[in-house]
Simulated scan of single mutants.
Amino acid sequence: MTRLPDFEAWAVFATVAEGLSFSRAADDLGLSKATVSKAVARLEARLGARLFHRTSRRLALTEAGRAAREDAANLLAAGEAAEARALDANGAPRGRVRLAAPMSFGVAHVAPVLPDFLAAFPQVSVDLHLSDAQVDLVGGGFDLGLRIAALADSSLRVRRLCGVRRSLVATPGYLDRHGRPEHPDDLRRHSCLGYAYLPTPDRWHFADASGAAASVVPEGPLRANNADALAPALRAGLGLAVQPDFTIWDDLRAGRLERVMPDWQPPPIALNLVMPPGLPRPARVSALISYLERAFSAVPWAQEVEPVGSPASLRHATSS
């Protein structure tokens, strides 16, 4: 008789592999650490291969573990989706939605809008994963991702929520001391604060209204992989930085920061909802999509966006 796959062990392995922590997986699954360890050991015995390298301080996937990780995540996601569809047929949206978002944006703008959603849908929970690094939505088992970028084509689906203006900014004090640049070439004489996760962090690109383009290699005392980490140096007048409006909106209105070179703009970007391919989506995911569309449709820093459902608002996106 053919043995059924050990679906529980695969689901436990997928959760451990995602966070590389037995303790975290036990907390997420509501199981004891011993139960999680036994499930992984059971799967390793069945496969005849070790899935993790274990030391007292570190857990890492083996080659076999890396090969099995995406399949495990897909199995877990398929099981959760099947259960959600059955639950959806019997009432209100319920279950967990796994949402990935950039760190600074997630803390400042996503987390504050979630309480109203959770109050409106008390049977839905949100697992919010914050990171400025690119996240593999499919491999990580995420239902949705928020991305702030100009997205290229891929198999993922994206809905553009709003445009995001980026500007070169500095404090009035810095500009009074060092002058106000008028052209990107002028930045060679200025202190520049860099963001490591720009598409080209070692070169800043600008364009004017006529379409003329210019770029510069920024040099300065600080580069960070999180926009909030640049804020203290920027506000202290240590240099200029290219920042999205959602990060600097309050500082601009209060006069603590000033837009520089308004005739030269960095390439346009947008706030996008990115989703793995495949339909239909569970009701809990559709509910959060609709809620986020409404929440970010009228924020003060948003730029105009095409109507939802237009060809430009529904297209393919990067697998980030």
Rank of each mutant, 00 (worst) to 15 (best):
R188V: 13
R188E: 15
H190Y: 12
C192M: 15
G194L: 03
G194V: 01
A196I: 03
L198Y: 14
D202S: 09
R203T: 15
R203L: 13
H205E: 14
A207R: 15
A207L: 08
D208A: 03
A209V: 13
S210D: 14
A213Q: 15
A213F: 06
A214K: 05
E219A: 12
E219K: 09
E219L: 09
G220K: 03
L222R: 14
L222W: 10
R223D: 07
N225C: 08
N226C: 07
A231Y: 02
A233R: 14
L234Y: 02
R235E: 14
G237E: 10
G237M: 11
L238W: 13
G239M: 09
A241H: 06
Q243R: 14
P244M: 04
D245H: 15
I248F: 12
I248C: 10
I248L: 10
W249K: 00
D251P: 01
L252S: 05
R256I: 01
R256C: 03
L257M: 08
L257C: 11
L257K: 04
E258Q: 15
E258D: 12
V260N: 10
V260T: 11
M261G: 02
M261H: 04
Q265D: 11
P267G: 11
P267H: 09
P268Y: 11
P268T: 02
P268R: 11
I269N: 04
A270S: 15
L273G: 00
V274C: 01
V274W: 02
V274M: 05
M275T: 13
P276K: 07
P277M: 07
P277Y: 11
L279D: 14
A283M: 09
S286H: 08
A287N: 04
A287M: 03
I289Y: 08
Y291A: 11
